[in-house]
Design a binder for these strands. Structure first.
Lengths: 236, 236
DNA sequence: TTATGTGAACTGATTCACAGCT
DNA sequence: AGCTGTGAATCAGTTCACATAA
């Protein structure tokens, strides 16, 4: 199971979403070409992507929706619980915390953090907003109680994002979903005088969700539509 | 100017963000290796990406921050005004409308739409929320007054997203930024009896911003860290 | 001497053709 | 007969080496 294109993982997530929709419509069987059409890719691509992880279909028949769904859930690690803290509970953080669908697949928000005095103690989704200074202790206490914090979401203003991410890494999270429009630097910020105080970013995964960047890419492609192949879905 | 990798466009947006930061810090000169380090890519990559659009540096010297910034702004089309409507003014839509940084570079929200009665007329960022049914007329009226609506943001629940996108396309926008966790189908929804009533999606650009997908990719990479090269930034 | 700009080499992802089951 | 699974071929994107200019 080595050497899988990162784009393939994005597509698996898409296939999973499609399978959920099919299941909701009580459609029981599908095929690589059906999935391909719904995902906006080729049927070859679907089969190749699935083949990285196993053999989930039946030749001549196609795929069974609940079975393939279960397999993708397993492959993506969505059959286990993921404990999440959100750093930054302004409008964006609150929108994220309340967005439906996150609680599918055992993603659980266990802590909400900010620095604004007016937000302290305020309740969102049944959780009280806490101060950033208490993040480290909170994560340690969770770990003690078998509630390891797996991921942190960074939803603070851009100029605070690097520090927020560093705080999450110091606290021991294994992954960061970064909503700020900056590239997080995976190095310990040099303190005055000293250089490199322990490289704690080793192994921490960062994923970015940057809507301002999306907006700018969109502007570019509207001006240069020929550079975007407006996917006239070829299916084999 | 043909055949530019889409990944290169994403990186250009990143370089631009970095140049803004440098300019704010009154740093006047940079280099491909400096940009590379800050962007988390190689210096080769930076030079190649820039080379798709022109020659912006001085050999032996590097790049002048304000000059390179101005060029990237031009390349990305951010020196012109982009009029935007948002469809879906729940928590997510409101967070987007209020997010600072969108008003950099002449992105202007000109209309906000929803269907919920309790939101009608409510003011967000100086604009009143209107009913979806008035979208088409609104866009037409804007076009009359030289205020063409260029993009629509889709921030409605997943099951409403396809219809919302179709409404935007019917109204005549040229690009869609889709926040819903589904793949928009670029086809006219077949009305009962008829098939294909005018393919109006031709040329409409779609960009996706899907935080649930990001969350799921993050889960996968936390479980399979070896598949992510944790970018130990090699700079030549 | 330094750092850009770029053709050529390479690497990796996608596409293809078809063998293999049902 | 039909659709999956997969090695081989193709294609695209990235890396490299170096010629070029300041």
């Amino acid at each position: 199971m080595a050497d899988i294109p990162t784009a393939a993982i994005s597509r698996l997530v898409t296939y999973l979403r499609i399978l959920e929709t099919l299941e909701a419509q009580e459609i029981d069987r599908t095929s690589s070409s059906d999935l391909a059409e719904r995902a906006g890719v080729t049927a070859f691509q679907v089969r190749k992507d699935l083949a990285y992880f196993g053999r989930f279909g039946t030749r001549g028949m196609g795929y069974t929706v609940p079975l393939l769904k279960r397999e993708l859930v397993r492959v993506l690690g969505l059959n286990q619980t993921w404990n999440v803290v959100i750093v930054g509970m302004g409008r964006l953080g609150q929108a994220i915390a309340n967005y439906p669908g996150a609680s599918d697949y055992r993603f659980q928000y266990v802590g909400l953090f900010d620095v604004a005095p007016e937000l302290m103690g305020r309740e969102v989704r049944g959780l009280n907003i806490r101060h950033m200074d208490t993040l480290r202790d909170f994560v340690a206490a969770q770990a003690q109680g078998q509630q390891r914090v797996d991921m942190g979401f960074v939803a603070v203003p851009p100029d605070r994002a690097q520090d927020a991410a560093q705080a999450l890494v110091d606290a021991g999270v294994r992954g960061i979903l970064n909503f700020a429009p900056i590239v997080l630097q995976p190095r310990t910020s040099e303190m005055s005088g000293q250089q490199e105080i322990g490289d704690e970013w080793r192994g921490v995964i960062v994923e970015n969700v940057d809507f301002l960047a999306g907006m700018k890419r969109l502007a570019f492609y509207i001006l240069n539509p020929h550079l975007r192949v407006t996917d006239t879905e070829e299916n084999e």
